[in-house]
C-alpha cells in the first residue's frame, strides 16, 4: 500500500467527499424527509401485516440509487416472521 501511496495512486479524501455528497443529494433530489420515510414505512408495515407477519424491528427502508444510471429507488428489506394465511372469510 505504501508504494501505491508513493505513486499517488491511493485515493485521498475526495472520495469521502463524493460519497457523502452522493448520499445527501439522493435525499435532496427525492425531496424526501426522514419523517416522510417513517410514515411510508409504517403504512407499508400495516398493509403487509394484513397478509403476513413481519418483523417491524428489522424492517429496513431507504432511498438508494441504481448502480447503472443513478436513478433513485426505494429500497425495502422486510423480513417475514411467519406467512399466515389471509383470512378470506
Amino acid at each position: 500500500m505504501d508504494i501505491l501511496n508513493f505513486l499517488g495512486r491511493q485515493h485521498g479524501t475526495k472520495d469521502t467527499a463524493k460519497d457523502r455528497l452522493k448520499f445527501v443529494l439522493i435525499h435532496d433530489r427525492a425531496n424526501c424527509s426522514t419523517d416522510l420515510l417513517e410514515m411510508l414505512k409504517n403504512d407499508i408495515f400495516k398493509v403487509i401485516s394484513n397478509y403476513m407477519e413481519i418483523d417491524e424491528e428489522e424492517l429496513d427502508m431507504q432511498i438508494a440509487t441504481t448502480d447503472n444510471d443513478g436513478t433513485p429507488v426505494l429500497y425495502a428489506n422486510i423480513p417475514i416472521k411467519n406467512i399466515k394465511k389471509k383470512n378470506n372469510a
Binding site: 485521498g12 467527499a17 463524493k18
Partner: peptide, 18 residues
C-alpha cells in the same frame, strides 16, 4: 490538491451534478 486526491476534480463535480 486534486492531484493528491484531496479535492474533487472537474469531472467528479460534473458527474455528480450531471
Amino acid at each position: 490538491m486534486v492531484k493528491k486526491g484531496d479535492m474533487m476534480s472537474l469531472d467528479d463535480v460534473a458527474e455528480i451534478l450531471a
